[in-house]
Nucleic acid binder design. Structure first.
Length: 582
RNA sequence: GGUCCCGUAGCUCAGCAGGAUAGAGCAACUGAUUCCUAAUCAGUAGGUCACAGGUUCGAAUCCUGUCGGGAUCACCA
């Protein structure tokens, strides 16, 4: 239950039936939120202020009319009118205790929402070129996309996770040539130094050996035109294997892999462009030279263009290169068209910030394809990750082979730490990824801090079982505990915070901001650790009371609630909760 | 030059789709461990929310402009 939505619905209803309310009154601007200052109560609504104009009355007068109606609602303990016309609502202890019971009953599915109403949505992420292993730059988009997909799923969308394999274009030819070089080496030849522009990494050596084993010297003296397609297929297969392994190491999942080359091969690119053509969205023209720095080899030439400007872009965009072949953009239009036809009116693309210039054209193309009022494509850009070693940037250069692979980082600090750290920042903000910080065990490291709180919850259960032999701490027994004895302000504060989880899920999903979950978990951990420490001074606030079964069970229920919320949140982030930290 | 992102405490960052006195961690200072994990907690101090206008009951949040930082800019993917 999202209690804010719950009470908002009730209050809107009450507002619409107020004396003197016009039939067509707009109650949408009414909000119900937690007041910033807890002293103001549990809920605050702006209803009186928003209704002042349509009702032509003073906010305070409207508040006076609404207050008794609200006070009568289930769960409401008291109502106050404050400031310019805020209505502050305080909920009864019993209401909060019922919420804890709800959390225990629902388990990690607590916070699930029907906000998405089961709408199909396609989330595309990673889509690294299949030309080598993933490096850290890819990790952020991968983790972000994965968490966003989980988040949307939790919030009620029907999510499909997709990977677009960029297996067409010149970089795949380069890959094939690089593999051929290694192939010659594998057969004992000395092809000399790697030609300029070929991929230097040693990850092609083993695939080349395997290929040499399979095909022997069949391609050694063959013409390039003969071996190129074979080497392309083989290399892309192997590189996708590497990437899948890397994704697996990160715990990132996809359900659908779509090949760019297949789009070209079975005519879907032509089909998409033809579709645009029929709508008059395509023409042959000459583009203006780019502003700013003019490329050395720029020259005016007629090209097949898409009327992107009619859909919100700044210039029209080329669909064909000067040699007549399709641009990447043309294939990408076909790809989005394909997704649309597969039943996804809603799509999300997760891209690196270096693709910022690409957003408008893809969004406008998608509008053109799907009809203007759809606007079904959202592009989320992830900013750079800067690796730090002892506070110093790690220098990376592809040329010297010193770039850090995703696998290196995962092996060193662990999948969970990588994921959590990359999600503890909003996607538009650059991240400094400090190796020392990520593995540090302190308050300053949110990854560790949240895990610590979870482990502590587990530890309390273990201790309870040890200290009180025969105590039944099964889920059923905990759910049966009498929660009405949880009336300490700190206990209720903790439950309040847990109860904001459903609302947080909805907000994070609506804004596509999984980082909010990481911050929320940090808050939960902090509140829980605070409560834990109270027990040091005040023995009656400890969780375990060997001489008081009922109190122990109620407190264990509280701890169980915290543990459940943390698990629910970590599940969205794709991080495994740990039961013990030593 | 165009476009996009960012600018909040000394540092690193949140800020809940406009709400009441702008928050957290680190660093600094003061306290708390025979005790359910002190790997923690409580407190003090620290801000002209880059700047200037605008929108309205109300702006860190929305709009315009300026300044500063980053990304990107036909035919690459």
């Amino acid at each position: 239950m999202n209690l804010f939505r719950h009470f908002n619905d009730l209050i809107r209803e009450a507002a619409a039936s107020l004396e003197g309310a016009p039939a067509d009154i707009n109650v949408a601007p009414i909000t119900v939120e937690p007041p910033r200052d807890a002293a103001h109560g549990d809920l605050a609504t702006n209803a009186a202020m928003v209704l002042a104009k349509p009702l032509r009355r003073k906010p305070r007068d409207i508040a006076e009319m609404l207050a008794p109606v609200i006070a009568d609602m289930d769960g409401v303990a008291s109502v106050e009118i404050a400031g310019p016309g805020f209505i502050n609502i305080r909920l009864a202890d019993g209401f909060w205790q019922a919420r804890l019971a709800e959390i225990l009953r629902r388990g990690v599915s607590y916070g699930d929402s029907d906000l998405g109403q089961g709408q199909a949505i396609n989330v595309e992420y990673v889509s690294a070129n299949p030309t080598g292993p993933m490096h850290v730059g890819h990790a952020r988009g991968a983790v972000f996309g994965d968490a966003l997909a989980s988040l949307l799923d939790k919030a009620g969308w029907d999510v499909t996770r997709e990977y677009y394999i960029n297996d067409a274009g010149s970089q795949v030819e380069v890959l094939a040539r690089s593999l051929h070089h290694r192939y010659r080496e594998a057969l004992g030849q000395n092809p000399g130094p790697l030609a300029d522009g070929l991929y230097p990494g040693d990850y092609l050596i083993q695939p080349a050996r395997d290929l040499a084993e399979r095909d022997q010297d069949r391609w050694l003296d063959a013409a390039e035109a003969e071996w190129l397609p074979v080497f392309q297929d083989y290399a892309v297969d192997r590189m996708m294997g590497l990437i899948r392994d890397d994704l697996h190491a990160l715990g990132v999942k996809h359900e659908v892999f779509t090949s760019e080359r297949a789009l070209h091969a079975d005519g879907r690119v032509e089909e998409a462009v033809r579709d645009l053509e029929e709508r008059g969205m395509v023409y042959t023209g000459v583009l203006e030279p780019p502003k700013g720095k003019l490329p050395d080899d720029w020259e005016p030439r007629p090209q097949l263009l898409f009327r992107a400007t009619e859909w919100g872009d700044d210039v029209d965009r080329p669909l064909k290169k000067s040699d007549g072949s399709w641009t990447y953009f043309a294939a990408d239009i076909a790809y989005h068209f394909d997704k649309f036809k597969r039943g996804f009116p809603l799509m999300v693309d997760v891209l690196g910030a270096d693709h910022g210039g690409y957003v408008k054209r893809m969004v406008s193309a998608t509008r053109a394809i799907t009809g203007a009022n759809s606007g079904g494509l959202t592009i989320k850009l992830c900013q750079m990750v800067q690796l730090l070693e002892d506070g110093e940037p790690v220098k990376m250069s592809k040329r010297s082979g010193t770039f850090v692979t995703l696998r290196d980082v995962v092996d060193r600090v662990g999948r969970d730490a990588v994921r959590f750290m990359l999600l503890t920042r909003k996607n538009e903000a650059p991240i400094d990824f400090d190796f020392a910080k990520v593995t540090e065990q302190s308050r300053d490291n949110p990854v560790w801090y949240v895990q610590y709180a979870h482990a502590r919850c587990c530890s309390i259960y273990r201790n309870a079982e040890n200290d009180m032999p025969g105590l039944n701490t099964s889920a059923e027994a905990i759910r049966a505990a009498d929660l009405s004895i949880l009336i300490h302000p700190q206990e209720l504060a903790l439950i309040r915070l847990m109860t904001s989880w459903p609302r947080l899920v909805e907000q994070a999903a609506e804004t596509s901001e999984p980082h909010r979950i990481a911050f929320y978990l940090n808050d939960i951990a902090s509140a829980f650790n605070g409560f834990w420490t109270l027990g040091k001074d005040a023995e009656e606030l400890r969780f375990i009371h060997p001489d008081n079964h009922d109190l122990t069970m109620a407190r264990l229920a509280l701890v169980g609630g915290v543990r459940t919320i943390i698990q629910s949140g970590l599940k969205v982030l794709g991080v495994t909760p740990v039961e013990e930290l030593r």
